[in-house]
């Protein structure tokens, strides 16, 4: 490639900088106003010199924001672990086990990927009410213990395992559980990691379902916690709302940046092969 002139180079940085500003703008504004007194925000002042962490102290002391975070952490972690386990076991079945009706079952599961959860909330609400799960962690975990998408994705990953490995394991006398645990899981670790991150974020971002099924701060996850803050008397307390939003976004940003390396590899693997 030709070497770039200095002006050319700075133009490129300028372009990149503008794009970065577009993406970061809402973060910066949210973070900045979270440090400002609400009185200043209400007056339409955006450049304030009275910056402090007071809004954060208020958010933590006056709202259940930390409780919401813990709730979401519990719900998302349980969902993630369950999906990794049940999806990988399901996927294993479709790759390494032979039994009557296997292909038919696979197509049945594939078909469920077409059915949006959003279109099924009415009977599902009746079901969890019948099972007495309303307003509990269980109501946000049990329907999502597995996912058709996860099974499909890990099936693709397990199919990459060389047949000779399975043969060798058979000769060694490994049973299916041992082969699954010692060979299949470690072999597909990038896909497993991708599914873990995906299912965690998916659960963390749930909005409609917890909104319908949880009614107390004790179990309410963050998305609906923020909705609660935003719709209650705190509505005009912009400083505190922004502080709450920042408190909520920091953990996921950290997870994203730490996990990005793995995530990117996993996604590329899925999207380009």
């Amino acid at each position: 490639m030709m070497s770039l002139t200095k002006t050319h180079k700075s133009l490129r940085y300028l372009g990149l900088g503008l794009l970065a500003l577009l993406i970061l703008g809402p973060f910066i504004l949210g973070f900045w106003t979270s440090l400002m007194p609400t009185a200043d925000i209400a007056k339409g002042i955006l450049i304030s010199s009275h910056l402090s962490l007071a809004n954060y102290v208020d958010a933590v002391q006056q709202t259940a924001i930390l409780r919401y975070l813990v709730n979401s952490l519990v719900i998302s972690t349980l969902t993630m672990l369950a999906q990794v386990l049940f999806c990988s076991l399901g996927a294993y079945t479709f790759v390494f086990l032979k039994f009557k009706g296997r292909d038919f079952l696979f197509y049945v599961i594939l078909a469920t990927m077409m059915l949006p959860f959003e279109a099924e909330v009415i009977p599902n609400f009746a079901t969890v009410r019948f099972l007495n799960l309303l307003n509990h962690y269980a109501v946000m975990v049990i329907p999502f213990l597995t996912s058709a998408f996860g099974i499909f994705m890990l099936r693709q990953a397990f199919r990459q395992i060389p047949g000779e490995l399975k043969e060798a394991a058979d000769i060694e006398g490994l049973n299916h559980w041992q082969f699954y645990w010692r060979v299949a899981l470690p072999y597909a670790r990038i896909s497993i990691f991708t599914l873990a991150a995906y299912s965690f974020l998916e659960s963390w971002n749930q909005y409609l379902w917890p909104m319908l099924t949880t009614f107390s701060d004790k179990f309410r996850p963050v998305q609906d916690g923020l909705r609660q803050l935003q719709s209650q008397e705190t509505f005009n307390n912009w400083g505190m709302i922004q502080a709450s939003a920042v408190i909520v976004v920091i953990p996921t940003l950290l997870v994203l940046f730490v996990g990005q390396h793995y995530f990117k590899n996993g996604l590329n693997e899925g999207a380009t092969k």
């Binding site: 990149l16 794009l19 970065a20 993406i23 970061l24 809402p26 973060f27 504004l29 949210g30 106003t33 925000i41 209400a42 007056k43 339409g44 974020l201 963390w204 971002n205 909005y207 963050v222 998305q223 609906d224 923020l226 909705r227 935003q230 912009w238 709302i241 922004q242 709450s244 939003a245 909520v248 976004v249 996921t252 940003l253 997870v255 994203l256 940046f257 990005q260």
Partner: peptide, 29 residues
């Protein structure tokens, strides 16, 4: 650095995005 920045909104949940943009779009303030 720009790659990291451009992927950042993946870590933003729907409520946080709504609050950030509500403020940007909110009347007068």
């Amino acid at each position: 650095w720009f790659r990291t920045i451009f992927s950042a909104t993946m870590g933003v949940s729907v409520s946080v995005a709504a609050i950030f943009w509500l403020f940007i779009f909110s009347p007068s303030v």
